[in-house]
Measured scan of single mutants.
Amino acid sequence: MAAGGDHGSPDSYRSPLASRYASPEMCFVFSDRYKFRTWRQLWLWLAEAEQTLGLPITDEQIQEMKSNLENIDFKMAAEEEKRLRHDVMAHVHTFGHCCPKAAGIIHLGATSCYVGDNTDLIILRNALDLLLPKLARVISRLADFAKERASLPTLGFTHFQPAQLTTVGKRCCLWIQDLCMDLQNLKRVRDDLRFRGVKGTTGTQASFLQLFEGDDHKVEQLDKMVTEKAGFKRAFIITGQTYTRKVDIEVLSVLASLGASVHKICTDIRLLANLKEMEEPFEKQQIGSSAMPYKRNPMRSERCCSLARHLMTLVMDPLQTASVQWFERTLDDSANRRICLAEAFLTADTILNTLQNISEGLVVYPKVIERRIRQELPFMATENIIMAMVKAGGSRQDCHEKIRVLSQQAASVVKQEGGDNDLIERIQVDAYFSPIHSQLDHLLDPSSFTGRASQQVQRFLEEEVYPLLKPYESVMKVKAELCL
Rank of each mutant, 00 (worst) to 15 (best):
Phe433His: 15
Ile105Gly: 06
Gln184Cys: 07
Leu84Gly: 07
Arg33Pro: 05
Ser112Pro: 02
Leu211Phe: 07
Ile265Pro: 06
Val247Asp: 06
Thr382His: 10
Met89Leu: 07
Leu352Met: 13
Gln416Gly: 14
Glu64Tyr: 09
Phe379Trp: 07
Pro162Gln: 09
Ala150Glu: 06
Val414Ile: 09
Thr166Gln: 05
Gln164Phe: 07
Gln285Thr: 11
Leu44Arg: 04
Ala143Asp: 13
Val414Glu: 00
Gly54Asp: 07
Met312Ala: 14
Gln409Ser: 05
Arg245Asp: 06
Trp175Gly: 03
Lys276Asp: 14
Lys276Met: 04
Gly214Val: 05
Thr321Arg: 01
Thr94Ile: 08
Ala102Lys: 03
His400Pro: 07
Leu443Ser: 00
Arg338Asp: 03
Arg404Ala: 04
Leu186Asp: 11
Cys173Phe: 05
Met389Glu: 00
Leu469Gly: 08
Ala431Gln: 14
Ser407Leu: 15
Pro318Gln: 04
Leu311Pro: 10
Leu461Met: 01
Cys98Leu: 08
Pro293His: 03
Gln184Arg: 05
Met26Phe: 00
Leu443Val: 15
Leu193Gly: 09
Ser15Ile: 12
Ile238Pro: 03
Phe30Ile: 09
Cys98Asn: 01
Leu331Gln: 09
His91Ala: 02
His437Asp: 01
Met387His: 13
Thr313Gly: 06
Arg371Glu: 01
Thr167Pro: 08
Lys367Gly: 10
Ala388Met: 03
Pro446Asn: 00
Ile265Trp: 08
Ala256Thr: 13
Lys264Ser: 14
Lys295His: 03
Glu417Met: 11
Glu473Cys: 13
Gly116Val: 05
Lys284His: 03
Gly8Met: 15
Thr202Cys: 10
Gln241Asn: 06
Met225Gln: 00
Asn336Trp: 03
His400Tyr: 04
Thr239Phe: 15
Asn353Ile: 09
Ile358Glu: 12
Arg83Met: 10
Leu124Ser: 05
Gln325Pro: 03
Glu25Thr: 12
Ser12Arg: 09
Asp11Asn: 15
Ala150Tyr: 15
Val405Trp: 15
Ala291Thr: 07
Ile403Glu: 01
Asp11Cys: 02
Gln41Thr: 02
Leu53Met: 11
Ala230Arg: 05
Tyr34Glu: 05
Gln397Ile: 09
Gly419Gln: 00
Thr450Gln: 15
Leu258Lys: 08
Val368Tyr: 11
Thr58His: 13
Gln428Arg: 04
Gly109Phe: 13
Trp39Ile: 04
Met278Lys: 02
Lys295Arg: 07
Cys173Tyr: 00
Ile122Glu: 00
Cys172Met: 09
Glu473Lys: 12
Val315Phe: 03
Glu213Lys: 06
Ala90Pro: 10
Asn353Phe: 11
Gln164Val: 10
Leu406Cys: 12
Asp73Ala: 09
His310Glu: 05
Phe157Pro: 05
Leu314Asp: 06
Gly109Asp: 04
Ala235Phe: 14
Ala260Ile: 08
Met292Thr: 03
Gly203Gln: 10
Val364Leu: 10
Thr94Asp: 01
Gly203Asp: 00
Leu128Gly: 04
Ser359Gly: 15
Gln241Phe: 00
Thr330Asn: 01
Ile386Gln: 05
Gln286Phe: 15
Asp59Ala: 10
Ile237Tyr: 15
Arg309Tyr: 08
Gln397Met: 00
Glu220Ala: 09
Ser434Cys: 08
Ile358Gln: 00
Arg196Tyr: 00
Ile62Thr: 04
Gly419Asp: 09
Gln356Gly: 00
Pro100Lys: 01
Asn297Ala: 05
Ser447Thr: 07
Arg33Lys: 04
Ser261Arg: 14
Thr111Asp: 00
Cys180Ile: 15
Val429Cys: 15
Glu376Ser: 05
Asp178Asn: 01
Lys295Cys: 01
Ser395Asp: 12
Val115His: 15
Lys402Glu: 10
Glu50Cys: 06
Ala127Val: 05
Glu302Lys: 07
Gln439Met: 15
Ile373Met: 12
Glu81Thr: 05
Ser334Asn: 14
Gln356Lys: 07
Gln397Ala: 08
Asp87Tyr: 09
Leu252Asp: 04
Phe160Gly: 02
Leu307Gln: 09
Ala3Pro: 11
Phe345Pro: 04
Ile122Asn: 08
Gly109Thr: 03
Glu60Leu: 07
